[in-house]
């Protein structure tokens, strides 16, 4: 036994590090066996197969189900609402419970979006969405993974999420607000000196007399105290909180002031930054 192995053999890991994720893990069950998922998933075919395809992030199965439904002359809108979106609702339920993880969400989101595209081909126009949102990365900032997640979460939850990309000039954001009239705008930044774009966006919106219910600001170095130093804004902590904030604006007509006050309740979990 080497010296290091001897040292290692003296250790009781319980005094050093405990993998709580392993300790807390429940029994393995199939995703469709979860009681919440059972309540969400449709019982009728082909909606059930389509939703299950989305649930498993299986694009081929999802598309086969969608095509089958379209061949049977089912309404593309019904396929979206009763099949694809139900699958995504089930995915969201499992993610919230900690049974599903980001790759599951991304693959399911990709499957759902491809299914929606098939339906839109038959519809001949874009399908109806809950509402429009606009997302951008601050000018001068090339870090966009957070924004990409935000866009994916919004789309997966039925929003028409307009993606302006990264390093976006303020003027382009203003033009997009003018054009799309979004219910929610999200901006992300990684650097302290690029997050200063956010108050400039608000200033320009105000100058033009444009109003959005809220500008969600988040990203690596973005701080809540900074975001709350100017109006119209709310500090976003996790990308997956975004659709819940958008829903509360859409359904409950929450204002940016209310989003700040009720953030934890709206996203449904303890958020240390808002404690």
């Amino acid at each position: 036994m080497s010296y290091v192995e001897e040292l290692e053999s003296q250790l009781d890991q319980n005094f050093i590090a405990i993998r709580y994720n392993v300790e807390m893990e429940g029994p393995a069950i199939k995703p469709e066996s979860d009681p919440d998922v059972q309540n969400i998933l449709p019982k009728e075919e082909p909606y059930k197969s389509i939703a299950t395809g989305v649930l498993y992030g299986d694009m081929e199965a999802t598309l086969n189900g969608v095509k089958e439904g379209l061949e049977e002359d089912l309404s593309p809108i019904d396929i979206i609402n009763n099949g694809l979106m139900k699958g995504m609702d089930a995915v969201s339920a499992l993610y919230t419970k900690g049974f599903y993880f980001l790759p599951d969400l991304m693959l399911s989101g990709d499957s759902m979006m491809e299914g929606v595209k098939e339906c839109e081909k038959v519809l001949g126009h874009k399908s109806e969405t809950k509402a429009t949102t606009v997302s951008f990365v601050a000018e001068g900032d090339p870090h966009d993974i957070g924004k990409n997640l935000v866009v994916m979460f919004l789309r997966a939850n039925g929003y028409d999420a307009i993606d302006l990309g990264r390093d976006v000039p303020t003027e382009e954001v203003i033009n997009a607000v003018e054009e799309y009239k979004p219910i929610f705008v999200t901006g992300t930044a990684l650097m302290t000196t690029t997050m200063t774009v956010f108050p400039k966006v608000v200033e320009e919106l105000e100058k033009k007399g444009l109003k959005v219910p809220a500008l969600g600001c988040g990203g690596g170095s973005v701080r809540k105290d900074f975001v709350e130093s100017f109006p119209m804004s709310v500090y976003g902590v996790e990308a997956y909180h975004t659709p819940k904030l958008a829903d509360s604006i859409l359904k409950d007509k929450k204002t940016w002031k209310e989003l700040r006050k009720e953030y934890s309740e709206i996203v449904g979990e303890f958020v240390p930054e808002y404690a």
Binding site: R19, Y20, N21, M24, Y95, G98, Y100, F101, L102, P103, I145
Partner: peptide
């Protein structure tokens, strides 16, 4: 580091 950052703490739900 993006992978590490997204993997986060033991109870985070993003990447393995």
């Amino acid at each position: 580091n993006t992978a590490m950052f997204m993997a986060g703490g033991l109870l985070d739900k993003d990447i393995a």
